[in-house]
Nucleic acid binder design. Structure first.
Ligand SMILES: [Zn+2]
Ligand SMILES: [Zn+2]
Ligand SMILES: [Zn+2]
Ligand SMILES: [Zn+2]
Lengths: 135, 135
DNA sequence: CTCCAAAACGTTATGTTATTACATCCGTTG
DNA sequence: CAACGGATGTAATAACATAACGTTTTGGAG
């Protein structure tokens, strides 16, 4: 959740995985990334998972828990927000990143009212984007 | 997300799985439930997954996406709320269910502002419960 | 009660997602 | 050069989830 502030000098594998995610319209699973990168020499899941871990650490990509997939960050300043919500369209699979400081502080204080101190959050909304809703 | 309104007359397998979850302090994975129920005749994952699906449909249990586990509902009236947030303690693993109509409508309208229409939500907060925070 | 259809169940096999373990490579530093 | 840490390659395995198929149970309709 809290991305590192270091300059992300990416390695070869990290670059390949990041490019795959950046050029995808939808979130990708680790294994579909692996399939895409066979020609680039990827042979095993671990090559993908290791790169994914680093990219998440750098704040360049996000993991979507509810669909076991990964997406490139397209939000201007994710790093400056405590919580990010992801709206995942069930028709076109595209993802919208939503940040809102009021929402974040409301949710955190709601948790605190319930005797809980939040360190990281998973907020994933499923439904339809406007483009898909009008058919 | 929208639980059925039918009277949940549980079958034998559903009852066993539900009891396992109700008597657990923490969320359980499908396979740990399977292990617990070996002596009751459970032999295959599908017996567990089928029961879990029905129990979710009845609104008796919840699935926690971020930890691939399941927990018995302990909220008085989950069924009357659109969204439920789960606070999962990273120390004791206990789960607190949180509902708040203002939070739900804020999140839904925030999504709406971002061109998205929510049908169901996954809100999972990680951190420490008060009991664990004081050591 | 008998028959039927839907739901639940049992079992095997398979598909999908993620990690452990260990050896090797490679660039930086001293 | 030697030592070190980070990154990589590879194989094996663990953990999570579903497909496919046949049988059994259950709850009405007649
Ligand atoms: Zn982002
Ligand atoms: Zn869409
Ligand atoms: Zn509940
Ligand atoms: Zn705790």
């Amino acid at each position: 959740m809290t991305p590192s502030t270091e300059t992300p000098k990416l390695t070869k594998n990290q670059t390949l995985v990041y490019k795959a995610l950046k050029s995808a319209e939808e979130p990708l699973s680790a294994y579909s990334i692996l399939d895409q990168l066979r020609d680039d020499g990827f042979r095993a899941p671990l090559q993908v998972y290791r790169a994914l871990d680093k990219l998440i650490e750098f704040g360049l990509i996000h993991r979507l828990e509810s669909i076991n997939s990964f997406v490139a960050c397209r939000h201007p300043d994710c790093g400056t927000h405590e919580m990010v919500a992801f709206a995942i369209c069930e028709s076109c699979n595209r993802v919208i990143e939503i940040t809102d400081d009021a929402m974040a502080s409301n949710l955190a204080s709601l948790a605190r009212d319930n005797g809980f101190s939040v360190s990281r959050s998973t907020i994933e909304l499923r439904g339809l984007c406007d483009a898909c809703r009008v058919h």
